[in-house]
Structure formats: structure tokens, C-alpha cells
Design a protein around this nucleic acid. Structure first.
Lengths: 240, 240
DNA sequence: GATTGCGGGATTGTTCAACAGTCCTTACGG
DNA sequence: CCGTAAGGACTGTTGAACAATCCCGCAATC
């Protein structure tokens, strides 16, 4: 077993190929991504049923592969499966919102406070998200503001340096967007936080982690209150 | 639409039924749970391939349903899928360990510090996990100590009050156990922390959140260092 | 008139069989 | 020693099938 000097190269090449293969998209993954996108963008509204045959037909995949995709999204809490009744787009209630915010209140300020050194790439991502939000707000494109907000909070969690934590955060954020779509008019839920995002990014750029963290925590608590209040008003008022 | 007085009862019943149906186990879920258990318990070692036909046969399900289960576990990072090569048990490396600990360092101390009021149920869960660990340690059952440790940290995150955060933590902990199995002898990785768990639980019982959090953070940093060091020593020494 | 019982259609849960595409090993030839 | 062709094993994906279950409407009943 004489090890030649190019063994490391071979190993790294093999690894790269394996990585690419791991990341390549299988048919079920593509279907899942497509559906997820439709749900997050609001095209597929909360509560709509997803019949397997019709949907598989529409997506151009077989029912079996579609079921793989659906299972994936059920695990992400974007869809809900009711046995023998099928899957439907989840409709988060205030319990879900409180739960998500409890998680966010743990994760986000802590990421700001205790993440590794603030490196330029992370700060740039934050600034980019802030700019994305303000320009979208200037042209009144509130769905785009919602996306920008999502990007901002993803960037915040990225400060933790943990890819896994970011992935988990994205699940929470996707669920939040589902909730927003239920609430209708997105402006009052996103507009107030554009300024706030800028302030927090500014604090971080200046290295003031404490201020950023406390401001972020207050921000999250306020957003939770606002959402829960709006939801309860809505369900008290409306009938369907 | 005259509402009778038993409407609320009907509504609650319907909700309960839906909840049960949502939680009830489909065949794929059962297969996934079984496989997960085998992996976490160490029966299925890192790197072992899981051929679909043989495995489906062994589990008594069809290949299609098995694939649903496998997809689920791939999403949980317990298994890895390499396209056209199949699924195999993940082998976390030090990168994964660093990533997981970065996430845990954000989540766990923050859950201790900023979770809602420490209620008796949570404190009882912590104590139970501590006792479970010490008795297992007394009889030298180190795999059981590993389980107890997992329960302790789950209880810590439960302080956050977020069911979702607990679920996400469980993914991280499962991945850690995969790593432990790779390292062989579990005693040196779990024994030192039994005492530490007891101290932290004591702090929390007395309401000293700050001490508990800082102690927990130090604990996590130490564990990460120990694990990474052991791993690198192991891979420098061995050849396969 | 409200309630119960009973099809009947639609949909899910699950299986089986098949086939092309890809990967791995092995043997062969230069 | 290197490339390569052949063959086998396995995955990715599909289509069809069948029992179980659910839902809706209609008739029978009290």
C-alpha cells in the first residue's frame, strides 16, 4: 500500500464529486422546492388541500415521487398530513406563533451576542438585506419587504457560525410567512421593522453587540405581540 | 344556524380526532423511527450502506415506503444520500461537531437565561435526567449515561418553552450520538459531565440562571475541545 | 323535520413489477 | 502499467393496482 504523493489530490477530488452528487437535485427534491416556493410566496394559501394525483400530474412526476416531496414538507411543518384525508397547507395559529417566537427569542439575540468574531462577509450580508428591504419598501412592494426581512434574520443567525442553526432558522421563517399570508395586508407587519433592521445592522457594524441584541429582543417581543393581537382581532371579527 | 349548547363539545371532539390522526403513525413513519433508533443506539454504525431492497425486505415494507422513511432521515442529517449510490449512515467529522456546538452554544445558555419562568415541571425533568445519569454511571452503563445526557440537554432547551426548539435540539443531539459511536469508548466523553449536570441543575433549582448559563457555556466549550482533540488524535493514529 | 343507515365516488396508504441510468468491479488487451 | 469493455448491482422513477378510509347525498325511519 505505498501511498503516492497524489493521493491527497485524488481524495479531495473524490470528495468534491461526492459533495456535488450529494447536492444534486433529485426529482422529489425539485418538486419539494417548487411546492415550498409556492407556499412561501403565498400562491398556495393556508388550508388548501393538495390531492396527490392531480398535483403529481401538474408537477409532471409520479405519485410516488410526489409523496416523497410531500413527506419532506410535512417534516418542515409547511404542510400537514391528516391520515386518510391527505396533506394540506398548514395554518399556523397563535400557539404556533408564540412557539416560533419563543425559539427566535432564544436564538437570535444569542447569535448576535455570542457568535464568533463579526467578519466582513456577515456584516455585508446584513447590510445587503437592509438595503433590499428599504428599496422594496420605497417602491411599496411589501411581499419583497417580507422576503428581505427573512434575509435579514437569516443573516443575523448566520453570525452564530452554524450552518445547521441557519437551516433550522429558515424553517421557522418559512412558517412565519405562512402566518403572514393568513393575515392579509402585509404592510403593517413589515414596514415598522425596516428602520429597526437598519439600526441593528448599524450597531453591529460598530461592534456594539449588546445594544444590537437588546434591541433585537425588544423587536421580536413587539412583533409577537402585534401578530397575536392582529390574529385575535381578525378571528373575533370575521366568521370564515 | 342556531348554535346548540353542545357545539363547543363537538368542536373540541373534532379537533381531538384531527390531532390524533395527525400524530398517528403511518408505515413510513414507523420505519423511520425504527431506523433512527438503530442508528442512535449504535446498532447501525457510521458509513454502513443501506440498500433499499434488502432493507425494505427486512423492515417488511415496500421499497417506495422505505424511500419515504429514508428521505426523512436524510433531512435529519442522520443518513446521507449520494446520488445513484444510495443512502448510508452519516459520519460526522470535526466540521460537523464544530457546527453543532456552535448551534448549541447559542441555544442552550440562552434557553437557560431567557426562557420563561422556571416552572416545577421543567425543573423536575432536569432532576430526573440528572438522577438517570448518576444511577447509570454507578452501574457503569455508559451508553445509558449518554442517553441520560441527551435527556438533560433536551430538558435544558425545554426551558425555552418552545416545542420547535426542542425538536431541533433533538436533531443536533442525535447527530452527536452518531459522532460518539465513531469515537468508541464512551466513558471519557460522558463521565466528566455527570457532576457538571448536577451542578447546573442545582443552580437552576435555586434560581441562579446566570451561574447556570455560564457554567453550561464553559461545559459546552470544553466538550467540543475534548471531542475534536480525540477525533484528530484518532485519525492521525489509525489508517482506516 | 331531524336523525340514522346505506351506498357510491373519490382519495389515500401501500404494494408490486418494470426499466433506464448510473456506478462499481473485474477481466481483458495493449 | 494503463485504459477499456462487459456484466452485475443498485438507484431513480414510473405506472398500475387494490384495500381501507373518508365524504357526500339519498332514502328510510322515528
Amino acid at each position: 500500500m505505498a501511498a503516492s504523493e497524489l493521493d491527497p489530490l485524488l481524495a479531495s477530488l473524490g470528495e468534491a464529486r461526492r459533495a456535488r452528487r450529494t447536492v444534486m437535485s433529485t426529482s422529489a427534491d425539485r418538486a419539494a422546492r417548487l411546492l415550498r416556493e409556492q407556499v412561501v410566496e403565498g400562491t398556495l394559501r393556508s388550508g388548501t388541500r393538495l390531492p396527490e394525483v392531480r398535483l403529481a400530474d401538474a408537477l409532471g412526476v409520479s405519485r410516488n415521487t410526489l409523496r416523497e416531496a410531500l413527506s419532506q414538507l410535512v417534516a418542515e411543518r409547511i404542510l400537514v398530513r391528516e391520515e386518510h384525508r391527505g396533506v394540506l397547507v398548514a395554518t399556523p395559529d397563535t400557539t404556533a406563533v408564540r412557539d416560533v417566537y419563543a425559539a427566535r427569542l432564544v436564538i437570535e439575540p444569542a447569535a448576535v451576542l455570542h457568535g464568533p468574531a463579526l467578519d466582513p462577509a456577515h456584516l455585508a450580508a446584513l447590510d445587503a438585506a437592509v438595503r433590499e428591504g428599504t428599496t422594496a419598501g420605497d417602491r411599496g412592494d411589501w411581499p419583497a419587504v417580507a422576503s428581505a426581512n427573512q434575509h435579514f434574520h437569516r443573516a443575523v443567525v448566520a453570525l452564530s457560525g452554524s450552518e445547521r442553526l441557519v437551516a433550522q432558522m429558515e424553517l421557522l421563517l418559512a412558517e412565519m410567512r405562512l402566518f403572514f399570508h393568513q393575515m392579509g395586508d402585509p404592510e403593517p407587519f413589515h414596514a415598522p421593522y425596516l428602520e429597526e433592521n437598519a439600526v441593528i445592522a448599524g450597531h453591529l457594524r460598530a461592534g456594539r453587540r449588546d445594544e444590537a441584541a437588546t434591541r433585537l429582543a425588544a423587536y421580536l417581543r413587539a412583533a409577537e405581540r402585534q401578530l397575536v393581537a392582529a390574529y385575535e382581532q381578525r378571528t373575533v371579527g370575521g366568521d370564515g
